[in-house]
């Protein structure tokens, strides 16, 4: 149930068997979520956090005119709302991009963990810091990168994060979202997104069609994106 989370944590620090048992014991119930279902609404009081086990989800905010900004994509092993443990309600919504499987982690269990297990507490703190680092990188993308670089960066990031939890293929990954949703990540319309994808395909960098991403030239894609994975903190060290 918590294997992907453990893979993500073990890439950053050693975890002993006792801690594995504690993390596994955090999970209360498991649920299936259909694609496109909003699982967390802004402003709603929270008594648990949600761990994504399978599928992809996103954090987003809607504007009055109907436009939507997706501010993060979640992959297996991510908490959707670990920040909700201290915030107690969210300022954004969370939606399933694909059919998904989630685990509920009651806040009272997290409270007990923070009282009894300082190392795990620091690692969970690390996870919310990591979320913030990814948000900063998306901010740089939206403010400074061109459409092509922004798109390339998103695919570099997702490939790296999915590979970490064993969900990537050697040359790409399954990414079953449509071009409207991809555009909502990138601050572009579906039509503009399609044009950028065509450009990246013609340059021999990336082929994204029908929910499958193929990195045709990973090094070239990284160059275009100015992708430096340092913000993903992939080094294992005592934390």
């Amino acid at each position: 149930m918590v294997e992907a989370l453990l893979l993500a944590l073990r890439a950053r620090d050693a975890i002993d068997p006792d801690e594995v048992a504690i993390v596994a014991g955090l999970v209360d119930e498991v649920a299936m979520v259909p694609a496109k279902r909003t699982v967390l609404k802004r402003g709603v009081p929270l008594s648990h956090s949600i761990l994504l086990i399978e599928g992809m989800m996103c954090r987003y905010k809607d504007m009055r005119n109907g436009s939507r900004q997706i501010s993060a994509i979640h992959v297996p092993g991510d908490f959707l709302d670990l920040h909700g443990f201290t915030l107690k309600h969210l300022d954004h919504d969370v939606m399933a991009l694909t059919a998904a499987k989630v685990a509920y982690v009651p806040h009272d269990r997290l409270t007990r963990m923070t009282e009894q297990y300082p190392h795990l507490t620091r690692l969970f703190w690390f996870l919310t810091n990591l979320d913030a680092a990814m948000h900063r990188e998306w901010e740089v993308s939206l403010g400074q990168r061109s459409g092509a670089a922004r798109t390339a960066h998103l695919f570099c990031e997702l490939y790296t994060r999915l590979a970490l939890v064993g969900k990537a293929e050697p040359d790409g990954f399954a990414f079953p979202i449509n071009q409207t949703e991809l555009g909502e990540c990138l601050g572009m319309t579906s039509v503009h997104t399609n044009r950028v994808l065509r450009d990246l395909r013609e340059r021999g960098l990336l082929d994204f069609r029908r929910g499958v991403a193929k990195l045709l030239d990973p090094e070239g894609l990284k160059r275009v994106a100015e992708f430096d994975p340092a913000y993903l903190y992939l080094d294992s060290r005592p934390r």
Partner: peptide, 26 residues
């Protein structure tokens, strides 16, 4: 640039709004 996937819109006027937004964005 061929659109293989398409986009949902409430009606033809909505599709035109998407086209205008897309041109402005590009």
């Amino acid at each position: 640039v061929h659109d293989e996937e398409g986009s949902d819109a409430p009606d033809q006027a909505g599709a035109r709004v998407l086209a205008l937004d897309s041109i402005r964005s590009i």
